[in-house]
Design a protein around this nucleic acid. Sequence first.
DNA 1: CGGAAGATCCACT
DNA 2: GTGGATCTTCCGA
Length: 199
Amino acid sequence: MKKLKKEFFQRSALIVAREILGKYLIREFPYGKVILKIVEAEAYMGVDDPASHSYGGKITERNKVMYEDGGLYYVYKIYGMHYCLNVVANKKGIPEAVFIRAGEPIQGLEIIKENRGLKGNFKVNQLTNGPSKITQALKIDLSFYGKSVEDSQLYFLEGEKIKEADVVRAPRVNIDYAGEAKFYPWRFYIRGNEYVSCR
DNA sequence: CGGAAGATCCACT
DNA sequence: GTGGATCTTCCGA
């Protein structure tokens, strides 16, 4: 299976957010690997998108990587305790990003459970059905900030082709602050998938 | 320098 | 459905 190159991400975040569905996200550990199939993603469309960290052309210490070439990781901490994983989209100077919201475990369930630190009762489909659940499951933190998607510890494979009929478009989640943009259908997920968040 | 808010998750009711 | 955890980042004064 082929590894995705940076070029895959150097298009509009709207295209990438749809196309990334079904792709495999691989995390390599010395003791094994974890594979997640991407089942949900959102597009953040840069300077004109009130929900985006780069709205109005804002540049800060946190978001500056968004202005770089597509295909770099944008990781940030939220609510003081969780990490969120994005991939920068489009060309240098166009600060768009794709927010990875949920995945389905393909391989490495034991490692995922270990990393999530859950004991006793839980459902398997609650392990990776949210943005910060993924970063916990794959041990992704700020050390990946600005790294390439062609990195050897965290990268994507072509995965599965998702038919147009199986793609759902919906408004993005938890962006009440964004006014009208709250309603833009820039969230993409696989129809009927058990691992999609907020169902 | 202070304060507010946050692309979340979990436990509890 | 509601609220608490937890703390960095950002902006305004």
